[in-house]
């Protein structure tokens, strides 16, 4: 059974992973404290394949990459938000956390049935279709490579500029 975890607007990185738990870089350990204060059930009950749905400006605040890593460690299938804070967005793409930006998504509840296709960018909520914002080609290139580190293993950074 897929759980849908619903959050509001402006969820900040201190809420995703409080600063006092950042004394590790371990994905699993960070995941144990994900959303510790705003949603204590998350770290106990989240399971592989769950979906996080949030409002505007998800991941605002500090540049800590521990935030997307903690979420990645919780094994969710996708994070869907109406918009993301800039640094979080870059971090998520760089580490290969599957995220989608769906600007017109509203009124999702934890009882909704959500399907996600990363290929088409289509998100279906109780049968109603939404479209995720199209990613610029170079970002798709990073994601297809499995993150920026993987990309740079085989390519030069300048290749991103004119990514087809």
């Amino acid at each position: 059974m897929t759980n849908v975890w619903v959050f509001g607007d402006d969820v900040n990185t201190d809420e995703i992973i409080p600063g006092r738990y950042n004394v590790t870089t371990d994905e699993q350990e960070l995941a144990q404290h994900a959303f510790y204060e705003v949603c204590p059930e998350f770290s106990e009950q989240a399971q592989t394949g769950d979906i996080i749905v949030a409002g505007k400006n998800f991941g605002c605040g500090s540049s800590r990459e521990h935030a997307p890593i903690a979420i990645k460690g919780s094994k969710v299938k996708a994070v869907i938000a109406r918009s993301y804070a800039r640094i979080f967005y870059r971090n998520a793409i760089n580490i290969g956390l599957p995220i989608l930006e769906v600007p017109d998504l509203i009124n999702v509840t934890s009882d909704d049935i959500i399907e996600v296709s990363f290929d088409t960018g289509e998100v279906t909520v109780n049968g109603r279709k939404y479209h995720a914002s199209r990613l610029p080609p170079f970002i798709r290139r990073i994601i297809e490579s499995g993150g920026i580190v993987e990309f740079l293993r085989n390519h030069d950074i300048s290749e991103l500029e004119n990514a087809p």
């Binding site: 540049s63 993150g147 300048s158």
Partner: peptide
């Protein structure tokens, strides 16, 4: 500008950023 660790690692490694 502030970035996450992986982005900054790329800048460390290449002297460049996107």
């Amino acid at each position: 500008t502030g970035m996450g660790s992986t982005d900054v690692a790329v800048a460390y490694a290449t002297g460049k950023t996107w």
